[in-house]
Design a protein around this nucleic acid. Structure first.
Length: 111
DNA sequence: TGCTTGACATAAT
DNA sequence: CATTATGCCAAGC
């Protein structure tokens, strides 16, 4: 049998994303670290991109380390993401930046 | 089968 | 604060 092929470690990434509490956001780096992929932030973004919309994964709670939405501002996805976050109570600055000090999720071992 | 790209991060300049 | 360089790994072509 075929060992691991580790289907996607992506599953781990998704799992980590699912842990993000409502009204909070996490950076790709944090997710990567939680998924046990410290430093592989890129893979997180890639995984999310390949994520189906009905996956149940709160992809919108994942932003880059700058506290900003990674998707191009002109992209519809970015707008949807922002709307979803605002709906959860996440506030954006005029420049569209989230205050990670306030809304950044501080990963805790199973709170 | 090998090179390029990418929802990133971090440090250096 | 903007740009550049490097690491890291999977998917696309």
């Amino acid at each position: 049998m075929k060992p691991p092929t580790i289907h996607p470690q992506r599953k781990r990434i998704y799992d980590a994303v699912k842990r993000i509490p409502r009204g909070r956001v996490a950076t790709y780096g944090q997710i990567a670290a939680l998924a046990g992929l410290r430093g592989h932030a890129r893979q997180v973004g890639y995984a999310l991109h390949a994520l189906p919309e009905r996956s149940g994964v709160p992809w919108h709670r994942v932003i880059n380390a700058q506290g900003r939405i990674s998707l191009p501002a002109l992209d519809d996805g970015a707008l949807v993401q922002r709307r979803l976050l605002e709906k959860e109570g996440v506030r954006f600055s005029r420049a569209g930046i989230i205050d990670l000090e306030r809304f950044g999720w501080k990963p805790r071992r199973q709170t």
